[in-house]
Simulated scan of single mutants.
Amino acid sequence: MGNRAVITTPSRQFGVYLHWNGGRDSVEPLLRYCELQGYRPPSQDSYGWARMCQVLGNYFGGSMSLGIDVYTTDEAMDPGDNGIYVIEGWRIVERLRTEYDSEWNPVGIRPVDPSEEQCVYDFEDMLRSFDESMPEELRLDEFLDSVEVPVAGVKLGDEVWMFDSVCGKWEAFPVVGFGQPHGNRIAVEVDAPSGRKKVVYPDLPYVAHYDHDGDFSWNCNNYVHGDMARIKPRK
């Protein structure tokens, strides 16, 4: 009895066993939650396995329902129910389960058809359930209400969520200007008419975080990098 699944990576080194919440409608929010937390993925290094298990252990509670083991073969690792999730980064790249003959004898492994995926739990509800299970100081809280917008669409006064990789947490700061840091410009690659990439240095939004005598434009860590940003909902 259960709603089982195993999560592994393309290298098939380890497998995490879920006795409950093994449906795709739980696993995808789990992966997204780990990504939003800024955790390194299991396909990158062992920290990813540890942090994913931390989230699951907090969610399940108790001393059972969760396991991790050396991966052997797909046939041996399939726990039944929801089968196997192969993840790369924090994305599902392959779904597998045991194939049976007409007499229910296992005859190999087959891909999971999308129509077979469980679809009961709401994605956002599961994100919040994982978050509520975390220690208070590690919760994402209102960050989960954030809105993703193109960096080019960020406005003066928007409160942008910035990730502090040292502290491992998100904080929101108001946008107070646009420009480039002095002496340490931020390059952005764009498509050129020739079809190639070219490097430009556009004015980027910067936030009121690291201060220097009232000047926030000096520090490159105050600037919003990348194509997309997360902001607090505009009023």
Rank of each mutant, 00 (worst) to 15 (best):
G157D: 03
D158C: 07
D164L: 07
F173Q: 11
K155V: 03
V154F: 01
V147Q: 09
M126D: 05
R97K: 15
Y121G: 02
P106Q: 10
F123Q: 08
E117S: 09
E124N: 14
L140D: 01
E99K: 15
P150R: 10
R95L: 13
P106E: 03
W104T: 04
D125T: 01
F130P: 00
R185S: 11
R97V: 05
V151S: 05
L156G: 05
E132H: 13
G183R: 03
E148R: 14
V112N: 06
R139E: 10
V154R: 02
E148L: 08
G179T: 03
F178Y: 08
T98D: 11
E136A: 06
P114N: 12
L138S: 12
D141K: 14
F163L: 03
D141L: 08
E124T: 09
V176P: 01
Y121E: 09
V147E: 12
S165H: 09
S115V: 12
P135W: 09
W161G: 01
I186P: 01
W170K: 08
V166W: 06
R110S: 09
P114D: 14
V120E: 13
E142C: 03
V107D: 05
E103A: 15
E136T: 03
F163W: 08
V160L: 05
R95A: 02
M126K: 07
P114M: 12
G153F: 05
R110T: 13
V107L: 01
R185Q: 14
G177Y: 00
V120M: 11
A152V: 06
E137G: 00
S165L: 03
D158E: 07
D158K: 02
I109F: 07
L144H: 06
R139M: 01
W170M: 08
H182D: 15
E142F: 00
L127C: 11
P111W: 11
V107T: 14
E142R: 03
D164V: 02
P150A: 06
D131P: 01
P111M: 07
D125P: 04
D113S: 15
E99R: 15
P106T: 08
A187W: 09
R128W: 09
S165I: 05
P181Q: 06
E103N: 15
N184S: 08
C167V: 00
V112R: 09
V112T: 12
Y100A: 11
Q180G: 06
H182I: 00
G108I: 10
V166N: 09
F143R: 11
E148M: 12
D131S: 07
G168H: 10
L140V: 00
P114V: 07
S115G: 13
D122S: 12
S129R: 12
R185T: 08
M134P: 01
Y121D: 08
K155P: 01
W170R: 06
L140Q: 04
D141M: 05
T98A: 14
V149N: 04
S129D: 10
L138F: 13
C119P: 01
D101M: 11
P114L: 14
S102G: 14
E171M: 09
G157R: 05
H182P: 00
A152L: 09
G153I: 00
V149Y: 04
E142T: 11
D122T: 00
D125Y: 10
R95Q: 12
L127P: 10
R95I: 00
L156E: 02
S133P: 07
A172Q: 02
D145R: 11
L156R: 05
E117N: 13
